Simulated assay, not measured.
Amino acid sequence: MKKKPRIGILGTAKGSHVQALAISLQGLGAEVILVDPKRMTSYLPEPRTVRCERDGSSETMGDLDALVVRSLPGGSLEQVIYRVNVLHRLENLGLKVINSAGLIEKTVDKFYTSALLAEAGLPVPRTVVTERFDEAMEAVRKLGTVVVKPVFGSLGKGMICIDDLDIAHRVFRALELGRYIYYVQEFLPSGNEDFRLFVVGDQVVSAMRRRGLNWKTNIACGSTAEKYRPEPAIAQLAIRTAKILHADYVGVDILVSGGMPYIIEANGIPGWAGLQSVTEVNLADVLAKYVLREIKTI
């Protein structure tokens, strides 16, 4: 009898994407093990011994066939670094991790993502990233209207648009008190819309147009989703983004301003609830099939 592939999902049972992916994997004949990212314990020098507690028992993670990362919660610097380094260790032990620790490190940091894409020649907005108040103020003078974003963040939380130097002064002084980095990006008018493309492997499997009530187009901020068939040039930008970042799957946000496309963000643990509402493709099924193909079980 053929052995069932054993697929771990890093996340909790409360997560809707975790639930959907678990159902899809089980429907394809896999055994699913939920791994709480806060309950991983490493033992050294014993080989392959990263264990996770679940349902009163424990699981040796090195014995899984693959691990899909669906949650990597925040915490102290030590906690976050440890959780990522557990993924690195599991990869070193030969476990297929989707997405890889390296990819997550690249995409959790907006500066790192934008820098990698810009250096590869892909179009990104003009951006200034600094720890210096005076340099941040100079960026507003040079760029005009800007969007100030947290380097770590999602769902549009914490982003503000600034078009006044006095407001910039107040905002930047407040950020200075919290010892934050200034991530200052030129504002690109786009008619309050942009596009999210969902790339799995080397294909755009689905896409949506997001229309906002204002410049923020995140679904979490009240934007609406519409079905969208991306033009070849837009699709290729998303695919190139995935290749440059070495992503198994990724959500790529692109806006068009002045007739030119710009990559705004790449999400290494992308949600797909909004996208699923406007596509006939079962995105959890697509991802589950990709995972099993990667470990050569289908």
Results as ranks from 00 to 15, higher is better:
Ala139Gly: 11
Lys106Ile: 03
Met137Leu: 15
Ala139Trp: 02
Val128Ala: 10
Thr130Pro: 07
Glu138Gly: 09
Lys106Tyr: 04
Leu122Lys: 01
Arg141Asn: 11
Thr107Leu: 08
Leu117Met: 13
Phe133Ala: 01
Ala101Asp: 03
Lys142Asn: 15
Ala118Lys: 02
Asp109Pro: 10
Glu135Lys: 07
Ile104Lys: 00
Lys106Arg: 10
Arg132Ile: 03
Val129Lys: 12
Leu117Asp: 13
Ala118Pro: 06
Phe133Gly: 02
Val128Leu: 11
Ala139Met: 08
Asp109Ile: 02
Leu143Tyr: 08
Glu131Trp: 14
Pro123Glu: 04
Thr107Ser: 11
Glu135Asp: 11
Lys106Ala: 06
Val108His: 01
Ala120Met: 08
Ala120Ile: 07
Thr127Lys: 09
Pro125Ile: 08
Val129Asn: 13
Ala101Gln: 05
Thr127Phe: 12
Lys110Met: 05
Ala139Lys: 03
Phe133Asn: 03
Pro125Ser: 12
Arg126Ala: 15
Met137Pro: 00
Arg141Asp: 12
Arg141Ser: 14
Leu116Cys: 07
Val108Tyr: 04
Tyr112Val: 07
Arg126Leu: 14
Lys106Glu: 01
Asp109Cys: 09
Lys106Thr: 02
Lys110Glu: 11
Glu138Ile: 08
Thr113Asp: 07
Glu131Asp: 15
Ser114Asp: 12
Phe111Gly: 00
Thr113Gly: 07
Val129Ala: 14
Ala136Tyr: 05
Tyr112Gly: 01
Leu122Thr: 04
Thr130His: 10
Ala115Thr: 13
Glu105Met: 07
Gly102Glu: 00
Val140Leu: 09
Glu138Trp: 08
Pro125Val: 09
Ala101Trp: 11
Leu103Met: 02
Tyr112Met: 05
Lys106Gln: 06
Gly121Met: 00
Lys110Ala: 07
Gly102Cys: 02
Ser114Trp: 07
Ile104Phe: 04
Met137Phe: 09
Pro123Asp: 05
Thr107Phe: 10
Glu135Tyr: 05
Val140Lys: 02
Gly121Ala: 06
Ile104Leu: 13
Phe111Cys: 01
Glu119Leu: 14
Val128Gln: 08
Arg126Met: 13
Arg126Gln: 15
Ala118Ser: 15
Ile104Met: 03
Arg132Ser: 12
Leu122Asp: 05
Ala120Thr: 08
Val129Thr: 15
Ala136Val: 06
Pro125Thr: 11
Arg141Gln: 12
Met137Asn: 00
Ala120Trp: 06
Arg126Lys: 15
Pro123Lys: 04
Lys142Val: 15
Asp134Gln: 10
Glu105Gly: 00
Leu117Glu: 12
Glu135Thr: 07
Ser114Pro: 12
Asp134His: 10
Phe133Glu: 01
Asp134Met: 06
Ala118Leu: 08
Glu131Leu: 15
Leu117Tyr: 14
Lys142Arg: 15
Ala120Asn: 13
Leu143Met: 15
Ala118Glu: 10
Ser114Gln: 13
Phe133Asp: 03
Met137Ser: 01
Ser114Gly: 14
Gly121Ser: 06
Leu116Ser: 06
Gly144Lys: 00
Asp134Phe: 09
Arg141Met: 10
Glu105Val: 04
Met137Gln: 03
Thr130Gln: 09
Phe111Ile: 00
Ala101Phe: 12
Gly102Leu: 02
Glu135Met: 04
Val108Asp: 00
Pro125Arg: 02
Lys110Ser: 10
Ile104Arg: 01
Leu117Val: 14
Arg132Gln: 09
Glu138Val: 10
Leu116Asn: 04
Val108Ser: 01
